[in-house]
Amino acid sequence: MIFYPVVFALLVTMALAIVRAVKGPSLYDRVLAVNMFGTKTVLFLAVASYLMGRPDFLDLALAYALINSIGVMAVLQFFQSREFRRRYEHRHEAE
């Protein structure tokens, strides 16, 4: 019973994050929404594993807590290499 307020808050926040991810407007807003959704998922999984009476399933939340940041790192690297490529092509056009 004591978990319901936090679970509701998490679910509503997930919905809000999805609205932001769908609306955009820029790509970074979408990345921000995904990252936020990830941390909400970690919390939801942690709370839900107590809610369902199986606290040994915290492994799942732990897995997301560890791996979730890789996505953002990949995005950072993607933007950076795109910027690099753009500059490179620009330089070649100048020559």
Partner: peptide, 17 residues
């Protein structure tokens, strides 16, 4: 504590929107 945490999370969600 958890309800306060849920409130924080919710405020963050509204802020992001």
């Amino acid at each position: 504590l958890m309800t306060a945490g849920g409130f924080c999370v919710f405020v963050g969600g509204v802020g992001v929107l």
